[in-house]
Amino acid sequence: MQKLRPGKKDSLIQRINGQFEKKNNLEMIEVQNLNFRYKKDSRILNFPNITLNNSESLLILGRSGVGKTTLLHLLSGLLSPYHGAVVVDDVAIHELSPKRLDAFRGHHIGIIFQRNHAISTLTVEENLRARLFFSGRAINTVVIQQLLESLNIADCISHRTNELSEGQLQRLGIAMAVIHSPRVILADEPTSSLDDENCMKVIDLLKKQAELNDANLVVITHDQRITAHFSKTIFL
């Protein structure tokens, strides 16, 4: 993991006796001076500063190759930055030990991936149960049922995921990202392969789920059709 510059990280978090001290403000996500360099690439990707308050949504637009997915992976802690910091819920996530970062990610962050994917050896319900298990949340069958009903895939609850259509898989992907009530929902190109009608449906679903969970929604895409649905937009 790349180390942060001490001066910058100290300004973002305060650690007292190994505990994080929460700041009394509304900022949920804060990205400062973030850049990234791939190991076999001399090019450095620079990202804009981002500040998102509680429950705010953000659209990050950019053409292919500018590092949209890289930014999403940095925001979720799947990649470590070259410089800069990502603070989620007052925690500088790249300062965490790998084990704590795994736990933090599982608990606070929900990710919707570009490619619809779920664990094929498990049923829809088992996927959601596994998601809750790994995030350390209590497994509640009623909550699972209600979520699947709200996404119109309750009929598929005992289906294996390889028996689902692309649309059903995408809804399951959304369910997987919100079942554990995360503070942040990150979506990577959720609408790029959809027609206009389905594109709007997915965005509505995402916004609705973010609202229900009181979570920040960050959508990273090159799809300009959804620009109007977000009050805050950043161009890469």
């Binding site: 979720s76 799947l78 790998p98 084990k99 795994d102 736990a103 990610r105 599982g106 608990h107 962050i109 990710i111 994917h117 779920a118 664990i119 094929s120 050896t121 596994a130 998601r131 790994f134 995030s135 350390g136 997987m176």
Partner: peptide, 16 residues
């Protein structure tokens, strides 16, 4: 590998 990577995003540790 994609399944295993997904588990990691769900919060699963290497050990798990």
């Amino acid at each position: 590998s994609f399944d295993l990577a997904l588990y990691r995003t769900y919060g699963a540790s290497h050990l798990q």
